[in-house]
């Protein structure tokens, strides 16, 4: 059975920010390849429109006035936040970009 290389699996896992173990890499080498072979079929489709259909919502877009304000008290968020200090959300130190 055709497989993705280990590097290819690690590349897509990195794109998705998902850690993969050695065992998983082997499984993904096969399963991701199957799906990627499937989507490859798109390249053979002919007779298509020039235009794209991004969303089937055709009634335009109602813009919001700059005067409408709706703020939520931060305390409501707190019980769902994994790590917070005071009203700040805490994460491991970000490499300052």
């Amino acid at each position: 059975m055709e497989k993705l290389s280990k590097e290819e699996v690690l590349h897509v896992a990195r794109l998705a920010r998902i850690a993969v173990s050695e065992d998983e890499i082997e499984k993904y080498q096969i399963s991701l390849k199957q799906l990627l072979d499937d989507v490859e079929k798109i390249k053979d489709i002919n007779d298509i429109s020039e235009d794209v259909l991004v969303t089937p919502a055709f009634e335009g877009c109602k813009l919001r006035s700059d005067d409408e304000v709706d703020t939520t008290d931060f305390s409501k968020f707190k019980s769902n936040i994994p790590h917070s200090v005071g009203d700040f959300i805490e994460v491991p130190v970000m490499i300052n970009e």
């Binding site: 897509v12 896992a13 998705a16 993904y28 799906l35 989507v39 298509i48 259909l53």
Partner: peptide, 29 residues
């Protein structure tokens, strides 16, 4: 996880045009 990985791959670099944009054109058709 599998779907996120494949989805990320499909949108990366030139793939976005080859797969995603093409799919949106087929969708319109």
């Amino acid at each position: 996880k599998r779907r996120i990985m494949v989805g990320s791959y499909l949108l990366s670099g030139d793939n976005a045009k080859e797969y995603y944009t093409k799919a949106l054109q087929v969708r319109n058709s």
